[in-house]
Design a protein around this nucleic acid. Structure first.
Lengths: 336, 336
DNA sequence: CGCGTTTACGTCGTTCGTAACGATA
DNA sequence: TATCGTTACGAACGACGTAAACGCG
């Protein structure tokens, strides 16, 4: 058995059981891949794939189990390489982050900026998507960190480190009636207007819906978007009242929008940063985590990695001590 | 990086950083091993060992971490081979068991016998030792199962499956005064005589000592041995009253010994069977576990492997449902 | 000088890529 | 006939073992 055979095996699996495309991805010849697969199957004495004619048709049960182990092995090989690079030269490498629009657009820029200054030689990959898409990216690996809000279920194989809380902000065109209620707005007031907000099933979104339902309100959501910029656009057009993450309430928006911090109206959301449990975090990765979530000390991260369940991890972070991210509001609703 | 290099690396570590002996163990030439180590270090760009002159002196911190990962990898490689053999030919392989004298002498023989009948082609290795020695054997790997009683602390890296309970038996020469107390014996009665029993720190032994202490008794232990056969020998010689595991009270002993089941006198002990968490158990291994502990169903074992702590595992086994192993007693002490 | 490691080098086996072939839809 | 996998073969590479040199106690 050779590492290369396992690598080829995984490449075949990850390319839809197509040996030709696997070979291309591996920058090698197709017969080579074919042969190594055959050798591996011969050595193990079992079929990893069932064939239809000559083409690979499906993975055998035995194959599934071998592949599972092979992934673990390649993971550990990567880990060895990682920690070796870390000892050898700390400043080079790559960092892949999958995250949502709000993070990518409003939260990460200053963090990424500082990171670039500190590690100019580290290649950065930022992938934007919905929670589901992020989960897919994680599954197909090659992502170091996932950053998202709520919906922890999708990421059960990651370690999720709570990073900060945030509330929602109400955005309306300047001079809108709601601006007169500054500081005393209720959900009832809000429900009187058509709303523009994030699509459902987006991070913590259902909690927003529930907040209305809990008061017996059924708001008229006229438009849902995947990102705050779109929401703002439609709010500017007078389509309705916008509800966005506070971080998305940019100071630059104040020219023509009025922003009200809705701290008391909706339950708080928590954004986390997640990574694979068995991955070696290189120095610059640790630093990135600390840039993003300064309360995560090296000690804390060590504890986190020793934890045996997500519940244990959550216990390590006193929710009340997490910072709260805000935007650039004109008014604040008084706490209920 | 190649699997072979990792294998060589581990061989070097396991042979006291002596490349020559590592090469012998690997049935290859010494320069070959030396070269592969060098290549690995070059590829990773770090020193795995610190050298004094040309000899390997110690493992560098980076080396420690690499070795740790390498072990994981080789473990998984073994797992792949294991499960492949299992699919290919279920009846061949090897089974190594480390256990204590009592198990090896009194409990395992019929189980091993049945196992041999069922899997004649599986090579059996039985290693006998004290709990500490068993722990050492586990550490130096190559042991599939450990079977022992009590002292779970020594085996924190194993999954321990509770298998059966047992009590102690009192053995005395025929016609001994204690036989007249049959059924009404107390610890106080026992403490009047010199005792012959297992050495302390042997499975659950301290609990025996404590049983006396709890009643304010300080028995005169005139002789301690590692195994029941020795104890019986000295009891026969009239040196004192023997306290042994009930399983060790053989029917063949009845010719000249009187055996009293001391079910109520001492706390019950529990014998467990342990194996490494990340090892693939081959079919015949699963069957062995079920021969040894019939209450462990395949479903149960699956649950066990999913458990995240020993506490969780223990919860899976209702202690009251475990069988109680007995010996071949003449009399039974009435329960207190 | 013995022990252990590294260097040097010839041999042998393996891998790789190209090219040709085979099978399937 | 286009697609995908296997077989065949020569070239290049890498691993192995022997022999010799080196460094340290």
């Amino acid at each position: 058995m050779k590492l290369q055979q396992l690598k080829y095996l995984l490449a075949i699996v990850d390319n839809g059981l197509n040996i030709t495309s696997a070979a291309e991805r591996l920058y090698t010849s197709q017969p080579g891949v074919s042969k190594q697969l055959k050798l591996l199957e011969e050595e193990l004495g079992l079929q990893l794939f069932s064939r239809r004619g000559k083409s690979l048709d499906s993975i055998t049960p035995a194959g599934e189990r071998v592949i599972e182990r092979a992934r673990l092995i390649m993971q550990e090989v990567e880990n060895i390489r990682s920690l070796a690079s870390d000892y050898y030269e700390e400043e080079e490498g790559a960092l892949s982050i999958a995250t949502t629009h709000t993070q990518a657009r409003y939260v990460l820029p200053p963090i990424i900026g500082e990171f670039r200054d500190r590690y100019p030689k580290v290649g950065l990959n930022l992938h934007q998507g919905t929670s589901e898409q992020i989960a897919d990216m994680i599954a197909s690996n090659d992502i170091d960190f996932a950053i998202a809000t709520g919906s922890k279920d999708l990421f059960s194989d990651l370690i999720l480190v709570p990073s900060y809380h945030w509330d929602r902000s109400i955005i309306v065109p300047k001079g809108h009636e709601l601006t007169k209620l500054d500081g005393r707005m209720t959900l009832g007031d809000l429900a009187k207007y058509p709303l523009v907000t994030y699509v459902f099933s987006f991070g913590g979104q259902s909690s927003l819906k529930r907040a209305f339902a809990d008061e017996g309100l059924d708001p008229d959501v006229v438009f849902t978007a995947r990102d705050a910029d779109v929401i703002k656009t439609y709010v500017r057009m007078g389509l309705g009242v916008g509800i966005v993450a506070s971080m998305a309430a940019d100071c630059a928006d104040k020219k023509d929008l009025h922003v009200i911090e809705a701290e008391g109206l909706f339950p708080r959301s928590t954004t986390w940063i997640g990574f694979r449990k068995d991955t070696v975090l290189r120095k610059y990765m640790l630093d990135f985590v600390q840039l993003f979530a300064p309360h995560v000390t090296a000690q804390k991260l060590d504890d986190v990695r020793r934890a045996r369940s997500q519940a244990e991890i959550d216990k390590l972070f006193d929710e009340t001590e997490l910072p709260v991210r805000t935007g650039c509001a004109d008014g604040v609703i008084e706490a209920a």
